[in-house]
């Protein structure tokens, strides 16, 4: 078990033949992911990395039976690509591209929801079920199989957290990078529910940051619904107000979205909140030893 993706998941790549799409699709295949084809308009009928290329997602789904799409198209075309995937019956779109306009994502997410398609990202490292299926750009070698689920807005903190967990002798069930944009797909709350229901996951690491209130919503959800231990870190305790810290969504506006507020809410919800990402591994060890 794991959440969302496993060794049998069939994946297509939108933006398959581009530089980024090619490079990462190849890495995913080497990891063991079942990439069954890709979409690049006007390259339909050709073969790339040993897999068929289609002009439209609809054709790709009809021919390959893929249920997940990994999206690498340039920022200006992300909204279109997500809607195409939703309309074609894809169940989960993993959007890696950074810099998609917020207005496009707003429309695309609303449309995806209408078509019951889940989305992850944009501007994220993707999702990985350790030693089974990697859909994204993370370095696969650091994710060893185990019982810790991980959810993070930040790519490199996903790696940092997973690495510490594995160095402590534990491993990862599934890790999801949800992205740091103002509008994102699956959020902590939904993923927490999936990890709670997954028998392979015994402990959940949640890495958040300043800006927005997804972590606050997650805290309320943890309090009511999560029985598994949660270890949380919120990045940006030292970030100045009103400044965007790298991620488009990482900004403290007025008194809202601060790290302090989020840490307090998570603490009150029963999560173990660490003040530095350097302490994630040790906190997980402590939580796992109590089980």
């Amino acid at each position: 078990m794991s959440i969302l993706v496993n060794k049998d998941t069939k994946v297509i790549v939108q933006g398959f033949t581009g530089k980024e799409g090619s490079f990462h699709a190849e890495q995913c295949m080497a990891y063991g992911t079942k990439i069954v084809g890709g979409v690049t308009p006007n390259k339909g009928g050709t073969t790339h990395l040993g897999q068929p290329v289609f002009n439209t997602v609809k054709e790709a789904v009809a021919t390959t039976g893929a249920t997940v799409s990994m999206i690498f198209v340039p920022p200006a075309f992300v909204g279109d690509a997500v809607m195409e995937a939703a309309e074609a019956g894809i169940e989960l779109a993993v959007i890696i591209t950074e810099g998609a306009p917020v207005k496009d994502m707003q429309a695309a997410k609303a449309f995806a929801t209408k078509h019951n398609m889940k989305t992850i990202g944009p501007n994220c490292p993707g999702i990985i079920t350790a030693q089974e299926c990697k859909i994204g750009i993370m370095p696969g070698m650091i994710f060893k199989k185990g019982n810790v689920g991980l959810i993070s807005k930040s790519g490199t903190l996903t790696y940092e957290g997973a690495n510490q967990v594995c160095n402590e002798g534990f491993g990862i069930s599934t890790a999801v990078g949800i992205g740091g944009d103002p509008i994102i797909g699956l959020s902590y709350k939904q993923l927490l529910a999936m990890f709670e229901a997954d028998p392979e996951t015994h402990c959940i690491v949640m890495i958040g940051e300043i800006g927005g209130d997804l972590e606050i919503q997650a805290a309320a959800y943890i309090k009511e619904n999560i029985t598994k231990p949660v270890v949380a870190f919120i990045a940006g305790q030292t970030a100045p107000k009103g400044k965007t810290m790298g991620h488009a969504g990482a900004i403290v506006s007025g008194s809202a979205g601060t790290a302090v507020e989020k840490m307090a809410a998570l603490e009150a919800a029963g999560a173990t909140v660490v003040v530095s990402p350097a302490e994630i591994g040790k906190a997980v060890t402590k939580a796992m030893s109590k089980l």
Binding site: S152, K153, S154, G155, T156, L157, E160, G180, I207, E209, I210, F233, A235, G236, Q237, T238, A239, M245, G246, H247, A250, A259, V275, S276, P277, A278
Partner: peptide
């Protein structure tokens, strides 16, 4: 640092 999250996390760790 590489990555916005790790960059903030590094600042937080230094501060801590």
């Amino acid at each position: 640092v590489n990555g916005a999250g790790l960059a903030m996390g590094t600042m937080d760790t230094i501060n801590h």
